[in-house]
């Protein structure tokens, strides 16, 4: 006698306690404003996307999301801020595919394991856009023309060893072109390369859908190939590389996502990823993605890490092949 009620009491209490701790654990994150560290200055596409995401995330997390611009040093200042932490989920950072090449080429004290890969938000397939005055208006014509006139064709892109450069080399290899058939002219940014092509200083350039769309729709540029498995909704007339008759690896893509300092607990990464996924479903975010012509493609922590690993291996292979690795 007395043992049963006591047991019940104990049981109830322990359940309550467990529930309470669960509640605390759930409620405790995020307990203070989240700092969202960017590697770019205000105004660019990455910054604007970050601010839209921050606003949408605030509603999901119930905490302010402070966007901090730490441009400079090829991302070194952002990495330093992330390292400073704390790694409890209250500090996150923006990441793009360029980080991978930068880790391998410049900030060699970092690699993809220096941070936690929380969530991927959007992908940007690479594409190739020719000037309307170029002697070729399809990839097939390009291949034929370049073989017949080696050293005559110029492609404008981002700096040597960048994602765009590797994308071009992947395509070029699948076309069976010798390395010096086409001159790769590096510019300060992908956009600068597109501008050079608009001005006739190069025959074609590497680009992204959002960057070339205004020029493609006004016939100032002709998109001759999209490095993706399916055509872009916004450029329905532009063929994919496969459709143009070449077998290039379409897993090589630019992406934008969220990273966190090394050691951020997996459950918090998961909570953040979940909040980001939900934020991406909000009408405001969807409207922005549509206006900015981005391709949303969510990946959670595990899947993002695996995707990044593949990109990292590809980058290493190509940098070595191109003799750009150190």
């Amino acid at each position: 006698m007395g043992t049963t009620p006591r047991r019940i009491v104990v049981a109830v209490l322990s359940v309550l306690a467990a529930a309470a701790t669960l509640q605390i654990a759930a409620a405790a994150f995020p307990e203070k404003p989240i700092h969202y560290v960017l590697h770019v200055s205000p105004g660019g596409a990455t910054d604007v996307l970050a601010r839209v995401l921050a606003t949408a995330l605030e509603k999901q997390l119930g905490q302010t999301v402070v966007v901090e611009n730490r441009p400079g040093g090829s991302g070194a200042r952002q990495m330093a801020a992330l390292e400073k932490g704390p790694n409890d989920g209250h500090v996150i950072g923006a990441v793009t595919a360029s980080h991978i090449a930068i880790f391998q080429q410049r900030l060699k004290e970092y690699n993809i394991d220096s941070v936690e890969w929380v969530a991927q938000m959007v992908v940007d397939p690479y594409l190739f856009a020719a000037s309307p005055n170029a002697k070729f208006q399809s990839l097939e014509e390009l291949a034929a023309y370049a073989k017949a006139n080696p050293g005559k064709v110029k492609i404008a892109g981002f700096e040597l060893g960048s994602g765009g450069h590797i994308a071009w080399e992947i395509l070029s290899a699948s076309m069976g072109l010798p390395r010096d058939a086409i001159i790769y002219v590096p510019y300060r940014s992908v956009k600068d390369g597109i501008v050079a092509t608009l001005g006739g200083h190069a025959d074609f350039s590497i680009g992204y859908v959002d960057l070339v769309l205004p020029y493609a729709t006004t016939n100032k540029l002709n998109v001759i190939g999209v490095m993706s498995d399916k055509r872009s909704d916004l450029l329905p007339n532009a063929p994919t590389i496969k459709e143009a008759g070449f077998d290039a690896d379409t897993d090589w893509q630019q992406f934008r996502g969220i990273i966190a300092p090394k050691g951020t607990p997996p459950d918090r990464q998961q909570a953040l990823a979940e909040a980001i996924r939900k934020a991406m479903e909000t009408p405001e975010f969807k409207k922005y993605v549509k206006d900015a012509q981005l391709m949303p493609e969510f990946r959670g922590p595990g899947a993002f890490r695996a995707f990044v690993k593949k990109q990292d291996d590809l980058t290493r292979d190509w940098l070595q092949k191109l003799k750009l690795a150190k």
Binding site: S74, Q105, R106, E159, L160, G161, S162, P186, R188, L324
Partner: peptide, 8 residues
Amino acid sequence: VDPLTGDN
């Protein structure tokens, strides 16, 4: 950083 090759 070298603006074309990315070398320090």
